[in-house]
C-alpha cells in the first residue's frame, strides 16, 4: 500500500514542455485514471512515476519519500505497457515468473506464486505457449499477471484496454477492477476513453496539453466539470450561453432557466449553462410552472435508451431517456429541467 504524490512535476523534452507543473496525490489503494486526448502527456506522467523518465523539475513521492532519483529497479512499481511487451522468446510461464527469477526468489516460492497467479488470471492451460500463440485478451492477462506477481506497491497501466474489442474490453474492465480491489494496490491507469475512466476509477485526473485540468471523482467530473474543455471532453452536449439574472436564474436563448447557485456566478455575469441530456424531462403536456417549449426534430433509438433532438428556437437541445416510451418526431414538447442538475461554467 503506497501513497503517490507528484509535487509540481515538470517534464521537458529539449525545448518542448510535455508536462507543466502537475500536482497529484493518489491515496494508498486508490484507483486513479489519467484521462486526456492523445499527446497530452499521460504516458510521460506514468513513465516518470515508474522511473523510466526523470522529471525536469518537481518531486515524486512514494509514502512521503522522494523517489525522483531512485532507479527503476528499486521503486518496486509495476507497469503494463500499451502493447504488453511480452517477451516473445519466453513461454507464458517464463514471462510471468520473470520478475521473481531476476530477484533471485527461491525456486519453490516462484513455483507457488506462479501457480497462484496463473490461477488468478485463468491462464493455467496456456502456460507452455509462446506469446505469439495467444489472443489479445490472453496476452493482456499474461502482462497483468507478470506485473502482479512481483507484488508492486504501485501498479500502472498504459491504455490497458485499447487493443481489445468491445466485448473483451468490458470483461477486462471488470477483471482489472476485481483484481485491484482484491489486492488493494494503488493503481494508476491511462486512458483516453472517458466512459472507461468513469467506470473504473475512484478518481480521474483530466490532463490537457501537459496541464492538470481537473482531478475529481467520476460523478463530479461528469456533473460539475471545472471548465468548458473538461465538459466538452466528458461528452457534454447541451452547453448554451446565458446571462445571470439572479443567483439562481439564467436567461438563455431558450428562455429563463432555474439553476443551482454557484459561488462566483452572481447576477449580471455572462456564463455558459450545461444541461446534461439525461437530466432533462421531456413532457408532452405543459408543466404547471416553468418548462421550455420546443418540438422534437429527430429521434435516435439505441434500444435501451433513446435520444431526442428538440428544437427550442435559438438552440437545439438533446434529451436522453429510457426507451420506455417513444415520442414521435414533430411532437410539441416541454423540457423540464431540474435546477440541481444545471451546471454553470465560466464563458
Amino acid at each position: 500500500m503506497t501513497k503517490v504524490q507528484l509535487n509540481a512535476v515538470r517534464k521537458q523534452f529539449g525545448g518542448f514542455v510535455a508536462i507543466e507543473n502537475i500536482d497529484l496525490e493518489i491515496a494508498s489503494g486508490e484507483l486513479v485514471a489519467l484521462l486526456g486526448p492523445s499527446g497530452c502527456g499521460k504516458t510521460t506522467t506514468l513513465r516518470m512515476i515508474a522511473g523510466l523518465e526523470r522529471p525536469s523539475g518537481g518531486a515524486i513521492l512514494f509514502d512521503d519519500q522522494d523517489v525522483s532519483e531512485q532507479p527503476v529497479q528499486d521503486r518496486n512499481v509495476g507497469m503494463v505497457f500499451q502493447r504488453y511487451a511480452l517477451f516473445p522468446h519466453m513461454t507464458v510461464e517464463k514471462n510471468v515468473a520473470f520478475g521473481l527469477s531476476v530477484r533471485g526468489t527461491p525456486r519453490a516460492e516462484i513455483a507457488d506464486r506462479l501457480e497462484e497467479m496463473l490461477d488468478v488470471v485463468q491462464l493455467g492451460q496456456f502456460r507452455h505457449r509462446f506469446p505469439a500463440q495467444l489472443s489479445g485478451g490472453q496476452m493482456q492477462r499474461v502482462a497483468i499477471a507478470r506485473t502482479l506477481i512481483t507484488k508492486p506497491s504501485v501498479l500502472m497501466m498504459d491504455e490497458p484496454l485499447a487493443n481489445l474489442d468491445t466485448k473483451l474490453r468490458g470483461e477486462m474492465r471488470r477483471f482489472i477492477r476485481d483484481l485491484q480491489q482484491r489486492f488493494g494496490i494503488t493503481t494508476i491507469f491511462v486512458t483516453h476513453d472517458q466512459v472507461e475512466a468513469m467506470e473504473l476509477a475512484d478518481r480521474v485526473a483530466v490532463i490537457f496539453d501537459g496541464h492538470l485540468a481537473q482531478y475529481d471523482a467520476p460523478d463530479r467530473l461528469y456533473r460539475q466539470p471545472a471548465n468548458l474543455d473538461v465538459a466538452d471532453f466528458m461528452g457534454a452536449t447541451n452547453i448554451v450561453p446565458a446571462a445571470m439574472k439572479a443567483d439562481d436564474l439564467a436567461e438563455t436563448g431558450v428562455g429563463a432557466i432555474r439553476v443551482a447557485p454557484r459561488p462566483g456566478f452572481g447576477a449580471g455575469e455572462n456564463v455558459q449553462v450545461m444541461l446534461r441530456s439525461e437530466a432533462i424531462d421531456l413532457m408532452i403536456t405543459q408543466p404547471t410552472q416553468g418548462g421550455v417549449p420546443g418540438k422534437v426534430v429527430a429521434r435516435d433509438f439505441f434500444g435501451a435508451s433513446v435520444n431526442y433532438t428538440v428544437d427550442c428556437g435559438a438552440h437545439r437541445i438533446t434529451v436522453t431517456e429510457q426507451a420506455r416510451r417513444l415520442v414521435e418526431v414533430d411532437t410539441p414538447v416541454w423540457l423540464d429541467i431540474d435546477p440541481d442538475r444545471v451546471w454553470l461554467l465560466a464563458s
Binding site: Q73, A85, T147
Partner: peptide, 23 residues
Amino acid sequence: LGRDFEEQAMILGASRWQVLRLV
C-alpha cells in the same frame, strides 16, 4: 527491437546485466 521490452524487464526488477542477458 523496441525499447518496451528492456524497460519492462527493468521495471520487473532486472539489473542492466540481466536485461542484456535475458532479454
